[in-house]
Structures are given as structure tokens and as C-alpha cells.
Amino acid sequence: MATSRTTTRTSSEGAGVDDAAPGRNEVGLRGRLAAEAEERELPSGDLIAVLRLVVPREPPSGRRRAAPDGPKRASVDTIDVVCWTAGARRSAKRLRAGDLVEVEGALRRRFYGGPAGRQSRYEVEATALTRVSRGASSGT
């Protein structure tokens, strides 16, 4: 079963928490790899590996299902994952489209210049990638 878990805490959460307590940004995902990782070289010369993970959504508890002929809602989330370290890039390049993968990392907001000026996007910066099982089209 594919699941996703995102935990982000700030120092203001919880009773009696010291305001100087550090924040926490941890992401754990499990889903299918949409396509093989793509390695890119940034203008700075840094190498990254970029991949996309498809994570099925669990139906929300306590909500009625939509009528069969009503509008369809997304049943998956597609999440961009980036690998900055050499180890994470190597792990990403060994994965194949369709593989079931677990990703550990942190949520990041990246800023970049685009045609309409400065833009941003959220992505998961992977610190660890683990193949859980091979996809049907991954070969032997």
C-alpha cells in the first residue's frame, strides 16, 4: 500500500514548548516512480537528479464519496523530488520507472528566474531513496 507522511513542526506548536526549540522538517513518501531520474547540471555547475513520485491518495475519512457520474477528484499526488548529494543521485539513477520507492528528506521551496520573472516551487530534497519493489516494466 502506498502512503505518504509529511511532518513539519514549528516551535509554536504544543503546550510548554520552548520558543528557542528547533523546528522540524521531515518528509517520508512511498510511491511509484513516474519515469527514470533525470540528471541536470545547474548554471552554478552543481549536479542534481530530479525525479517524480506518484503517491496514491487515501480517501479522507468521514467524507461521502462523490456520485459516480459527478466530477472526478485527483486520486494521486505527483511530487517532485530532487537529489543534491552524490549518494542520493547514485541511488536515484539505479531506479526505474514503475519502481515502488520510499523517499526520506525535507520539504524545500526553491526560487528561480523564469520567463515571468522570479518564481518558486516546492519540492522534496531527498536524503535517502530505497527501492521497495521493482515495477512491472523494470526488467528482471
Rank of each mutant, 00 (worst) to 15 (best):
M1K: 12
R5A: 12
R9A: 07
T10R: 11
S11K: 03
S11F: 01
S12T: 01
E13Q: 07
E13H: 02
G14M: 11
A15D: 11
D19H: 03
A20S: 08
P22W: 13
G23R: 12
G23L: 08
R24E: 07
R24Q: 12
E26I: 06
V27Y: 02
G28L: 09
L29F: 04
R30G: 02
R30V: 09
R32A: 12
L33P: 03
L33V: 12
L33F: 10
E36D: 15
E38K: 14
R40K: 15
R40S: 08
P43G: 10
S44Q: 05
S44H: 04
L47S: 14
I48W: 05
V50D: 09
V50M: 11
V54C: 04
R57F: 10
E58R: 15
S61A: 15
G62C: 09
R63W: 15
R65L: 11
A67R: 14
A67N: 09
P68N: 12
P68H: 14
D69C: 09
P71N: 12
P71A: 15
K72R: 15
S75M: 14
S75K: 15
S75I: 13
D77V: 13
D77W: 13
I79S: 07
D80F: 01
C83R: 05
A88C: 13
R90G: 06
R90T: 07
R90L: 08
S91E: 08
A92H: 02
R94P: 00
R94I: 00
R96E: 08
A97N: 03
D99L: 06
L100G: 01
E102M: 13
E104R: 13
E104V: 06
G105P: 00
L107G: 10
R108M: 07
F111I: 07
F111S: 15
Y112W: 14
P115H: 12
G117A: 14
G117D: 13
R118L: 13
Q119C: 14
S120C: 14
R121E: 08
Y122N: 10
E123F: 05
V124K: 01
A126N: 01
A126T: 01
A128C: 02
A128L: 11
L129W: 05
V132G: 09
S133P: 00
S133H: 02
R134V: 01
R134Y: 03
G135N: 11
S137R: 14
T140I: 10
